[in-house]
Deep mutational scan, measured.
Amino acid sequence: KVMEIKLIKGPKGLGFSIAGGVGNQHIPGDNSIYVTKIIEGGAAHKDGRLQIGDKILAVNSVGLEDVMHEDAVAALKNTYDVVYLKVAKP
């Protein structure tokens, strides 16, 4: 199931950690970017929809399929206060 989640960045950013990407696979044979941690009190935690194990398909208009881990981190960092995440639920 794919959904779009709109998050408003807090003082600590979006409030979640990711793993995965080309050269840094979270699941062997899979280059996808996965949510590995939700920080308590952060934007994602308060919103409640993003969960550990969700796959991040895109940030705003930037696709995160088959990208390097660093590029995924940069895509999440290089955002304004309002961030749209395209997410696939497991």
Rank of each mutant, 00 (worst) to 15 (best):
G53L: 04
V87N: 01
L64C: 14
L7C: 03
I39S: 13
V35A: 03
S32G: 05
I38V: 13
I18L: 06
K46R: 10
K89P: 09
K55F: 02
N78D: 15
L57P: 00
A74K: 11
G13W: 03
M3S: 07
D66A: 12
G29S: 08
V73A: 14
N78L: 07
M3G: 05
H26D: 03
K86I: 07
G21T: 02
V73Y: 08
L14R: 00
V22A: 08
G15R: 02
M3C: 07
E70F: 13
I52P: 15
K77E: 08
I56R: 00
M68Q: 13
R49D: 05
P90Q: 14
P28D: 05
V59H: 00
A43R: 06
G15Y: 00
A88K: 13
A72P: 02
K86T: 12
I56P: 00
A44F: 00
N78I: 07
M68H: 12
Q51P: 00
Q51W: 06
K12I: 07
G48V: 01
G63E: 15
V67L: 10
R49Q: 15
I56H: 00
G23P: 04
E4Q: 06
I5E: 00
K89L: 05
S61T: 14
A88C: 12
G41I: 02
A58M: 10
P28C: 08
K46W: 08
P28T: 15
A88Q: 07
Y34H: 04
K12H: 05
G63K: 14
H69G: 08
V87A: 05
D66E: 15
A19C: 12
V67R: 10
T79K: 12
N24E: 15
P11Q: 08
K89H: 09
G21K: 02
G53P: 00
I8K: 11
G20Q: 03
K37R: 09
G20E: 02
L50P: 01
V35R: 00
A74V: 11
L85H: 01
V2M: 06
G23E: 13
V22L: 07
N31V: 04
V82E: 14
M68C: 11
L76R: 01
P11S: 09
N60A: 03
V83D: 02
F16N: 01
G10M: 06
P90D: 09
S61D: 09
V67M: 15
K12S: 08
G63N: 10
Y34D: 01
D71C: 11
I8F: 08
E4N: 15
K1H: 03
L76H: 03
I18R: 01
T36D: 15
G42L: 09
G53M: 08
L85C: 03
G13L: 03
I56C: 03
Q51E: 15
A43E: 13
G20T: 02
G23T: 09
F16S: 01
L76T: 03
G41L: 05
D30A: 03
I18D: 00
V62M: 13
V83C: 12
V87H: 02
D54V: 03
I56L: 12
L64H: 02
K9Q: 04
Y84H: 10
G41N: 13
K77V: 08
V2Q: 05
A88F: 14
V87W: 01
G13H: 04
N78H: 14
S17E: 07
I39Q: 08
A43S: 13
G23A: 09
K46H: 09
K1W: 03
M68W: 08
Q51T: 15
K37T: 12
V82H: 14
H26R: 12
S32P: 02
D81E: 13
N31F: 04
H69I: 07
I8M: 13
V83T: 13
A75V: 10
L7P: 01
K6P: 04
V22E: 04
H26L: 07
S61N: 12
F16K: 01
V35L: 05
K55L: 08
N31L: 02
D66M: 08
V59N: 00
S32A: 08
R49T: 14
I18F: 08
Y34Q: 03
S32L: 03
R49V: 12
K12T: 06
G13D: 07
K46N: 11
V73K: 12
G15Q: 02
D47Y: 02
K77F: 06
N24T: 08
V35P: 00
F16G: 00
A19T: 11
G29D: 09
G21A: 02
S17V: 12
G20L: 02
S32C: 15
K89S: 11
G42C: 14
G21M: 02
G42A: 10
F16P: 00
A58I: 04
G23K: 06
Y80E: 09
L57A: 09
G53Y: 04
Y34F: 09
Y84M: 14
G63V: 12
G53Q: 05
G10L: 05
I56S: 00
G21L: 01
K12A: 05
A43I: 09
I8D: 08
A58P: 00
G63R: 13
D66Y: 10
H45L: 05
I39D: 09
V22N: 10
A72M: 03
S32R: 05
Q51I: 05
T36F: 04
A88G: 13
G13F: 03
G15W: 00
V62T: 12
V62A: 14
G63P: 11
V22S: 07
K55Q: 11
P90A: 10
M68R: 10
Y34P: 01
A88V: 08
G21D: 02
A43P: 15
I38W: 01
A74T: 11
S32V: 02
L85D: 01
I5C: 03
K77I: 13
K6W: 04
L85N: 01
A43G: 06
I52E: 13
L14N: 03
M68T: 07
N60L: 00
G41Y: 12
E4A: 06
V83Q: 03
K1F: 05
M3K: 09
G29P: 03
H69C: 11
V2R: 04
K9A: 09
N60V: 00
E65W: 08
I52V: 11
S61M: 10
G13K: 04
G13E: 05
K1C: 08
D47S: 07
D54S: 07
K9L: 10
I33E: 01
A72T: 03
G42I: 00
E4R: 08
K9S: 11
L85G: 00
P11W: 06
G10V: 05
A44N: 01
